[in-house]
Simulated scan of single mutants.
Amino acid sequence: MPTVWQHLATPPALPGLFLRAALRRGIRSQPLPNLGLRCELSVDPRHLARYRQVCGIAASAYLPAAYPHILAFPLQMQLLTDARFPLPLLGLVHVENRVRVLRPLGGLGPFTVSVELGALQPHSKGGVFSLITRLEDQLGLLWEGESRMLCRGLQVPGVAVNPPTATPLPLSDVAQWAAPADIGRRYARASGDFNPIHLSAISARLFGFPRAIAHGFWNKARTLAELQQHLPDAGYELSVRFQQPLLLPGAVTLQASAPGPSGQLSLQGRDGAVHMSGRWQPCDPCDTAHKA
């Protein structure tokens, strides 16, 4: 079914959406709604500076490659807490993410940000769906992101299909950094994502974690900051799979293949646990996974 688009005059306020998410329980049997949200907005330079500082991203004429996800976060929250959305937001697991930088992310806007849902599909641990985000300017599509979200225990007809595995490339150490105990709270203030699993050990224990865990998108943004010499300004996509959670405080080592049009990466902890793995490759600006 085609997406039914709703145009918002301003981004929705987050406090009410967090309350709606906290009160929502249970899984309904209805399908995912064919609802999409659009909103025009511009970048606040002070907010961008805070985001760069928290994620260790150097100043640049271009927006960071993961930043459009932050711009779209209020719209994502409104879509995932809509009364027609059948799954509880708390408990969804972000398992994969892909960003496509189609053109250089220059300027501060105005941009049109949009979010919509992909189809629900079977997974070995439940059901997965895509949350699709786009950033456009007056010339068209600039950036596209796809987050794969897992709902554990959900019964979806069909057979789960595992993505193809790429031939491993030689990796070498690129960077190391610490993930301090308060990085979840600092990133939450910069991103708006106040999921309790990231904020403190007390709130994380309510969801089965011994300590707070780092945001997956902080891991990805911090990784992209260290791969600036490996990646072009545009014309590429970078896909990652979020694996073992990074408990806070912690420390990681980023490994990557040699700079080039295509490559692979791995983010590992001191004990060798892989927290995130991924790859990058060129993309065709005309070949988007989901047409608007």
Rank of each mutant, 00 (worst) to 15 (best):
M1G: 15
T3W: 06
V4F: 15
W5L: 02
Q6N: 12
H7Y: 12
L8W: 14
T10P: 03
P11W: 07
L14K: 01
G16F: 04
A21D: 02
A22Q: 10
A22M: 11
A22K: 06
L23I: 07
R25S: 11
G26T: 09
S29R: 13
P31L: 10
G36S: 10
L41M: 13
L41S: 04
V43L: 05
D44Q: 11
P45C: 04
R46K: 14
L48V: 08
A49Q: 15
A49E: 13
Q53F: 13
V54M: 09
S60P: 08
P64H: 11
P64G: 09
P64M: 11
A65K: 07
Y67I: 00
I70D: 00
L71M: 14
F73Y: 09
L79R: 01
L80R: 04
P86T: 07
L87V: 04
L89C: 06
H94I: 09
V95R: 06
N97R: 04
P104I: 02
P104L: 05
F111D: 06
S114L: 02
E116H: 14
A119Y: 09
H123Q: 11
H123L: 09
G126C: 07
G127Y: 05
S130F: 04
S130W: 03
L131R: 04
R134M: 05
R134V: 01
D137K: 06
Q138N: 12
E144V: 03
G145A: 12
E146Y: 00
L150N: 01
R152W: 11
V159I: 14
V159Y: 12
A160H: 10
P163R: 08
T165V: 14
L169G: 03
L169Q: 15
P170K: 11
L171C: 11
L171P: 07
L171E: 09
S172Y: 11
W177F: 15
R186Y: 10
A190Q: 06
G192E: 01
F194I: 10
A201T: 11
S203E: 04
S203Q: 09
A204E: 06
R205V: 09
L206N: 00
F207H: 03
F207N: 00
G208T: 07
R211P: 03
H215S: 10
F217R: 01
W218F: 13
W218A: 03
N219P: 05
A221L: 10
A221H: 06
E226G: 12
E226V: 13
Q228N: 14
L231V: 12
P232F: 13
P232Y: 13
D233T: 15
G235R: 08
Y236G: 04
L238N: 03
L238I: 15
P249L: 11
G250H: 01
G250M: 01
T253V: 13
G269M: 07
A273V: 04
M276Y: 08
M276A: 06
G278M: 07
Q281W: 09
D284I: 03
P285V: 08
P285S: 10
P285R: 02
D287C: 12
T288K: 05
K291Q: 14
